[in-house]
Design a binder for these strands. Sequence first.
DNA 1: TTCGACCTGACAGCGGCCTGACAGCCGCCG
DNA 2: CGGCGGCTGTCAGGCCGCTGTCAGGTCGAA
Lengths: 223, 223
Amino acid sequence: MRVLVVEDDARIASDLKAALESAGFRVESCGDGENAWFLGDTEEYDLVVLDLGLPRLDGLTVLKRWRGNGREMPVLVLTARGAWAERVEGIDAGADDYLPKPFRMEELVARARALVRRSAGRGSALQEAGELAIDTNRMFVSLRGVPLSVTALEYRLLSYLMLHKDRIIPPVELLEHLYGDEDAREANALEAVVARLRRKLGPNVLGTRRGFGYFLEPLGPGR
Amino acid sequence: MRVLVVEDDARIASDLKAALESAGFRVESCGDGENAWFLGDTEEYDLVVLDLGLPRLDGLTVLKRWRGNGREMPVLVLTARGAWAERVEGIDAGADDYLPKPFRMEELVARARALVRRSAGRGSALQEAGELAIDTNRMFVSLRGVPLSVTALEYRLLSYLMLHKDRIIPPVELLEHLYGDEDAREANALEAVVARLRRKLGPNVLGTRRGFGYFLEPLGPGR
DNA sequence: TTCGACCTGACAGCGGCCTGACAGCCGCCG
DNA sequence: CGGCGGCTGTCAGGCCGCTGTCAGGTCGAA
C-alpha cells in the first residue's frame, strides 16, 4: 500500500510517517500544495493524507483539482479542531474522510486502513474467452473490443457458457439453466437462440461438438 | 437513495429523518438493535446511520454481524463525545465513518452524501453523464447547461442512475431504492416516472435495454 | 446411403415497455 | 374551510422486439 502524506509541519509529518509505516504502509511525504498536486495527479496512491493549511497552494484547491481530473483515490483530510464549516467544505470537495487535529495516531491508522479496505475490490468483473469478452457488471458483451447488442436470453446463454468455458455443455444442461424444469422448452428453442447468436458473433466463436454440446472457442488444448 | 436510521431517541430519530429526507434520501427508521440487524441483513440500503447505544442489541454487535454476513453498505456511526476507544472499535468493526454527538445536521447530511458517493467509487459531488449533470449537494439538475426542474421522485431516480452510471439498472433494483419494501409499487409506477422524465429530458438521455433495465447515455464505449 | 443431430429462415404470439388519461393525495393560499 | 394546482400511482390500450415453433435443409457418422 502506497500512501502520500501532504503536511507542512515537519514534526507532524514525521510522526505520521512513522505511524503509517509501522502499520505496513509505504509512505511518501510532501510539504507544499504545488508538489502535492503534481504527485497526486501523476502517481498512483492507495491513499492520500492531506492537511488543508499548505504553502503555495491550498489543500482544498489541490483536492478539487484532483477530483476534477478524475483522480479517485481515497483522501483523508486533516482539519483544525472545531472548524465544522471547513469539514463540510472538504467533504463536498471530494474528501473521503477527515480527522480533526489534534488526533491520536491509533485512530488515524484505523481510519486509513478502513479507507483502503473500502476502496479496494471495485472495478468491473470482465471475463474473456478468445475474442469474446463479457462484463458482468454492466451486462455488456463485446467482440474484438467492439460492443455487441445481445438480448436477455442470449446474454444468459453466453454468461453460462463463459462460466464453464473449460468444458462442453450438453444441450440438456443449457435448457435446464435457461428455462426452468417446469416450463421445459423443446431442444429446437435452444438451437434457434444459438443460430441467432451466431449471426451476431460470426464464425469460430460459439462452437458445436456434435453429440456433446456447445462451447466457446478456444476450448483449451485438445479439440 | 435508501437510508436506514437506527436511533432509539425518538426526537433525534425524527430530526435525522427530516434532514435526510429534505436532502433527497428515502428514510426508514428503526429503534432497537434486533430489528436493525434484521433489516440491515435483509434489505438493500445505500447507507445506514447507526447509533451505538441501543436497546436489545448493542450497535457494535449489530454492525459486526452485518459485516460477518458480508453486508457491505456504508455505515455512519454516531458516538458519544470523546469516546476514543469506542470510535476505534467502531471503525475496526467495519464502520465507514463516525460522527461524535452532538453534531450539526448539515454536517451529517454532507457526510451521508459523501459516503454514498464514495461507496460507488465517485469522488465528486458534481456528476455528469453525456449532456446531463447533477449536483448532489444542491439537488440541482441541468441539461446541456440549462437548469432543469425535476420533482423529488424524479430526482431520486436520476441520482441513483447517476451514481451507477457505469452499468444498467434492473427495474427491481430501482423500485427497491426509490420506494421501500414495505410500500412496494408495481412496475408500472416506475415506467410512468421514466416516461414523465423523458418528456423533460428529450431523447437519448435516459435509455432502456429491453430485458435488462435503465441507464444514462452514454453508457461505456458505444451503443 | 441412411439416419439422426443440428442449422436456418419464416412466422406468429406473447409480453416487456410506452403513453395518455384519470383520480387520489397533499400542501398552499385565499 | 374550501378550492386549486402539482405530484404520483393506477389503468387501459397499443406498439414492437423477443422468442418458441414449424418446416424444411445440411452435415457427419456408421
